[in-house]
Design a protein around this nucleic acid. Structure first.
Length: 420
RNA sequence: GGUGGGUUGGCCGAGUGGUUUAAGGCGCUGGUCUCGAAAACCAGUUGGGGAGAAAUCCUCUCAGAGGUUCAAAUCCUCUACCCACCA
């Protein structure tokens, strides 16, 4: 949510943002309602003042006057409530303003490359794609996954399971060294937190709901942003740097037919996510954004995965975000980079809804800025790891940094394994 | 699942319809005193909203929502959470 005062004072900026996003929103109507609402606040409050004063000097003779006063106050309050409900409904539909550097565009195809990191390998043999490697190395069971979970279901097994846990542990270890506090976050979360993080009321079709008014989170961003809901922090406490593991659930509505095979696009996956709460300055947000994006790149480099960073175009920029980078890992079989990470600047869009504030050194209370960034997402990243580290004989070398967690160097094909 | 008790400011805690502008204490901040500190004393100390150039004024905020009343921390209803006991 944006500040209504900001909207009121910068209607043109917001109009630009709305048209840049090709978003349908009647700003004039919001501004009109804001004006009417403020007029009603004034009227209601002056009636209350009158009533407070009259009640202090209560006498039985004036009872009839007081009753009339109460009556007109209640009518005015009802009028206000009606406008206020509409005002708040509209405020939840106002999108965040994209950073001026965000390029125009409709979909991820219009994202713009910023840099490439690492060298793509030239294989001097015919490479296997990750579907083949997963099958031959017996790392995933899609048939039984579908039997149990339905479409896009999967079981990770053998080194597929071990590699996943090693990746989470690797990401945790790496980020703890960078000063992040580790968490395991809840993945069943109340509706209001989804509203406050900007995932509702729009985009309900992307979420799994339960019968208990709880929703399954698409990212630990949701519970971790809720963590400090309704709190006032001290400026010295910032930045808050959190790294959280959680299962993630996405209905992938509207992606029928996309990536139907394999483990790239699934309904349930695991993710290590980091969030940062920092001072309410754009430069501070930018600084941390660049910083945490680099952490993710460094982890990919350590895993031996070439990648590139793209800046997402407006069409691929979520409703509440200001600026987003995707990091895409190299997929040798497709000869292209594919999204494995997202790193975003949110400014105070979520913290304003969540009422996460801090008291700054000048004594003012401000809404903190927030950022979120993928540290590692499994099983998606396995695709890139398996393909990039495959050898001619069909085995896959385990990235050096993960070996200590798994206790072996190479994953060998099932045929040469002693499988029970 | 059932019954009872509870939820008050940063913290503890008083308060059962109208001088409560929420007593008192602790903590914190500033000041006086002091070479400096402690103690003592004085003052300040939740957060939101509206009007205003500002000073300031008004309004809401006692778990949350609604209700009764001229008037609600206080009475009523519902919800959430905590504690105890029962099944």
């Amino acid at each position: 949510m944006l500040d209504i005062k900001f909207i009121r004072e910068n209607p043109d900026l917001l109009k630009q943002a709305i048209s840049k996003r090709h978003y349908n929103f009647d700003l004039e109507r919001l501004l009109k309602i804001d004006e009417v609402r403020r007029g009603l606040i004034k009227e209601v409050e002056s009636l209350r003042e009158e009533q407070n004063k009259a009640s202090e000097n209560f006498s039985k003779e004036k009872l009839e006057d007081l009753k009339q006063l109460k009556d007109s106050l209640q009518k005015k309050e009802a009028e206000f409530t009606k406008i206020d409900v509409e005002f708040r409904r509209l405020m939840l539909l106002v999108p965040n303003i994209p950073d001026p550097v965000v390029p125009e565009g409709k979909s991820d195809e219009d994202n713009v490359e910023i840099r490439r990191v690492g060298e793509t390998k030239n294989f001097n043999f015919k490479i296997r794609d990750h579907h083949t490697l997963l099958r031959e190395l017996d790392l995933v069971d899609l048939e039984r996954g579908t039997k149990i979970s339905g479409f896009r279901g999967y079981f990770l097994k053998n080194e597929g399971a071990l590699l996943s846990m090693a990746l989470w542990q690797f990401a945790f270890d790496y980020l703890i060294k960078k000063g992040f506090t580790p968490f395991i976050a809840p993945s069943l979360v109340k509706e209001n937190i989804f509203v406050e993080t900007g995932k509702l009321p729009l985009f309900r079709e992307d979420l799994y709901a339960t019968d208990d008014n709880l929703f399954l989170v698409p990212s630990a961003e949701i519970p971790m942003m809720g963590y400090h809901e309704n709190e006032i922090l001290q400026e010295e406490e910032l930045p808050k740097k959190y790294v959280a593991f959680s299962p993630c659930y996405r209905r992938e509505a509207g992606s029928y037919g996309k990536d139907e095979k394999g483990i790239y696009r699934v309904h349930e996956f695991m993710k290590v996510e980091l969030i940062i709460l920092c001072k309410a300055e754009h430069q501070e947000s930018v600084k941390w954004h660049e910083e945490v994006t680099r952490y993710s790149e460094e982890m990919l480099v350590a895993l031996g995965l070439p990648c590139r960073v793209v800046i997402n175009c407006v069409g691929d920029l979520p409703f509440g975000f200001v600026k987003m980078y995707d990091i895409e890992a190299w997929i040798p079989s497709e000869k292209r980079y594919r999204e494995s990470h997202s790193s975003s600047i949110v400014h105070d869009f979520q913290t304003r809804r969540l009422k996460i504030r801090y008291k700054s050194h000048d004594g003012k209370i401000r809404f903190a800025h927030s950022l979120n960034n993928t540290a590692i997402a499994t099983p998606r990243i396995l695709q890139s790891i398996l393909e990039n580290h495959q050898k001619e004989n069909g085995s896959v070398e385990i990235p050096e940094v993960l070996r200590k967690y798994i206790g072996k160097d190479v994953i060998t094909p099932r045929s040469s394994k002693n499988v029970s």
